[in-house]
Design a protein around this nucleic acid. Structure first.
Length: 263
DNA sequence: ATCGGTACCTGCACGC
DNA sequence: TGCGTGCAGGTACCGA
């Protein structure tokens, strides 16, 4: 499910747990854990929640003494405040008031307890909503891959995913197979602007609910109604009417208008 | 360091 | 109805 706008929406939806204390935590699926379940439970029990932040697609729950509870939602992960347990409920975090559940049908999500930020999470690229056009252009100049693959690389910018890469490229009029370093400065500028616009608008709409994405209160997003190319294969381009095409780039379904998006 | 390909999971839609 | 195939918001890891 979750790219930057969805993760941001989920992070905001659990902001209310800041200040609460973790009473206990139970983990029932080894695959999604970075660390041993009993050790993680012991590290979490009794800790006060000091803050919630998002770093790329990671949700960082800051605890006492620099400890972090780091959550990645993978493709189908959900953080939920209360609600009924299901066969995909893999973690139950009991708070002094309420409970935080982690569900994940496909088990691509990951949970981790660390002292400070894990190195893997620390060394990601800049936030796409903060990176300046100058830095964006400089970083792009060093990349020889296709622009779609570059946007998906979390070391280039952190938080873009398959939906918003396709949507940003469409809005910028750039073909997904264009080589990053070869983009003219004017097109780089358009891409930077399109990326910021599409992510900002998507956050305002609470993200995209493609199948079952919801925030921690169970609310769906509405940005799926604003998609112009993503999963619109064969449908007419909203600008020129040409059928939207789907190709594979970096093994990911990639949607674009062959007339509006040029290499 | 970067690039492109593969593996990891479950569930759904589709054609036969 | 059942079965095989392809597809799905993700990252990690491999060899080149």
């Amino acid at each position: 499910m979750p790219e930057l706008p969805e993760v941001e929406t989920v992070a905001r939806s659990i902001a209310g747990i800041v200040g609460r204390r973790i009473v206990s935590a139970e983990f029932t699926c080894l695959r999604i854990l970075r660390g041993k379940p009993d050790r993680m439970s012991a590290d979490l029990a009794g800790r006060r929640i000091r803050g919630i932040r998002r770093r790329g697609k990671f949700i960082v729950i800051d605890l006492d003494k620099g400890h972090c509870f780091v959550v990645h939602l993978g493709m189908t992960g959900k953080l939920l405040l209360g609600g009924t347990r299901s066969r995909h409920t893999h973690a139950i975090v009991n708070l002094d008031r309420g409970v935080l559940l982690f569900e994940d049908q496909r088990q691509f999500g990951r949970l981790e307890v660390s002292q400070g930020l894990p190195a893997r999470v620390e060394k990601l690229g800049p936030e796409p909503l903060e990176v300046t056009i100058a830095e964006f252009a400089a970083r792009l100049k060093r990349r020889s891959a296709r622009i779609k693959a570059i946007l998906l690389d979390q070391h280039f910018v952190r938080g873009m995913g398959n939906i918003y890469a396709d949507e940003a490229l469409f809005r910028a009029g750039i073909h997904p197979l264009a080589i990053g370093a070869r983009l003219r400065p004017e097109r780089v500028k358009r891409l930077h602007r399109a990326m910021v616009e599409v992510l900002t608008q998507a956050i305002e709409k609470g993200g995209s609910s493609i199948s079952d994405y919801v925030d921690a209160e169970g609310r769906r997003g509405f940005f799926q109604f604003e998609h112009r190319v993503y999963q619109r294969t064969g449908d007419p381009c909203v600008t020129c009417g040409s059928p939207i095409r789907r190709i594979l780039v970096a093994q990911r379904g990639t949607h674009f208008c062959p007339k509006c998006q040029r290499r």
